[in-house]
Design a protein around this nucleic acid. Sequence first.
DNA 1: CGCGACAGTGAAGATTCTGTGAAAAAGAGG
DNA 2: CCTCTTTTTCACAGAATCTTCACTGTCGCG
Lengths: 259, 259
Amino acid sequence: MNADFRTRIENERFLVVPKASTKAQVIFVVEDDADILRLIQHHLKSAGFEVVGFPTSSGALEQAARQHPALFLLDIMLPGESGLDLCRRIRQNHKLEMTPVVFLTAKGEEADRVAGLELGADDYIVKPFSPRELIARIRAVLRRTQRPEKPAIIQIGELEINGEAMSISVGGAPVSTTPTEYRLLEYLASHAGRVFTRDQLLDAVWRDSHFVTLRSIDVFVRRLREKIEPDPEHPLYLKTVRGVGYRFERSAAGESASA
Amino acid sequence: MNADFRTRIENERFLVVPKASTKAQVIFVVEDDADILRLIQHHLKSAGFEVVGFPTSSGALEQAARQHPALFLLDIMLPGESGLDLCRRIRQNHKLEMTPVVFLTAKGEEADRVAGLELGADDYIVKPFSPRELIARIRAVLRRTQRPEKPAIIQIGELEINGEAMSISVGGAPVSTTPTEYRLLEYLASHAGRVFTRDQLLDAVWRDSHFVTLRSIDVFVRRLREKIEPDPEHPLYLKTVRGVGYRFERSAAGESASA
DNA sequence: CGCGACAGTGAAGATTCTGTGAAAAAGAGG
DNA sequence: CCTCTTTTTCACAGAATCTTCACTGTCGCG
């Protein structure tokens, strides 16, 4: 009856032959409270990040210059140099100035928060925070900052996705989509060639509201097919991967129906 | 939803007949109110999870160490050891420290919630909750926590297995496979050169359901041969090891099959 | 040279999964 | 408060896939 649940295909211990190894992103955390530090490390790790923790800001900058973390997570109140000061130094360092910074603030330190944002922080998280919020915000910041070269326009076959205008056209003819349709298509197209389970798509496209049935995705795929596929019954772009999920075909050259 | 009421939820484990080739994830629930516990069990089960319930925290940790649940769902207020304490012990246990914990809190226990989060809980659910929210949150936590291995590309001879796209091609020509065919081939290919008995293959590729005839594997091997072998009668890749099982030939360089 | 065990084959039945149409629910604007 | 758009759910039907089974062909060995 409810078959939705089992859409997960774990590649468990399938050995993997070298290819572009997906490097886990490194996050530097500076937090003096050992318990909280451990907590943060735990959550970030289980979210797939690599974490380097520091009890004080001393040494963090130097190591960062070598290791180039993807993001700094700084407590504002620190013994010795404060998080704000560290942030300032990060912003002045040529190699690190583009690295995003997220602040941790205790409830009520409104003033600090403002100061932090003025220093060029990318976000702030108020303690106590939920793990979900922590991960979500960090991912959001990374998403935002980490693609300087995100192509504004994706072109695959006849299909064109204009990220700036948030518009879509097929063979030159504009196609109107609803917001969610657009996000789904953009996500799949910008990761063309890769399979996504419905779970993953929910995570990526629906963001926070996970209160949606997995099957809803099928409906959006259908409607997108009706809009962009020459023949919705034999999709050129939006392929079904049975038992797994969906994939945007990378090379939508000219294959049509097959055996 | 034409589901019938089954009042004998707890007896169901005796009736279970394997249906899917996917492994049900086990969730440990600790909740002292028998009604609520039963309710939760019911909902989780119909969402496809396997559930083990405890009225108190005693014994839960020990059994968990053996059974490795995918997630803990803990009421905070418990007779005897509280959920918070249990969580603390979970986090200190080497084998279980990565296991996600979700708390159940009564409305208004804001303080508990904060404490829970600081202890490393991954989420909390406020009673009374809707079944949908319960499922959605648990799924969200599981999604976030257990991230699948990263795929890659395996190439042997003319054969190419793209783990990212979950697609297979021979000599550049794409070959469509069913999910199980794909898993079997990927498993064999990624352990090329090694012989596997049918039992081992069932274990690895079919996961839980050992309720499948060993001979079924022969059928899958046959169909894979038809798809990837130049000459299915004289396999280049998928070799039979008589009396034992199958092996994926490591060096399938030689093109010609027969004279 | 024949026997028994084991593997390959074809097809049929059972089961699961996705596509679809329609309708309810949730938002957005007036 | 009402109307229009978008999102989400639902139930069913048709496909695709899995599994079994009976039969045939092959291999190894005495």
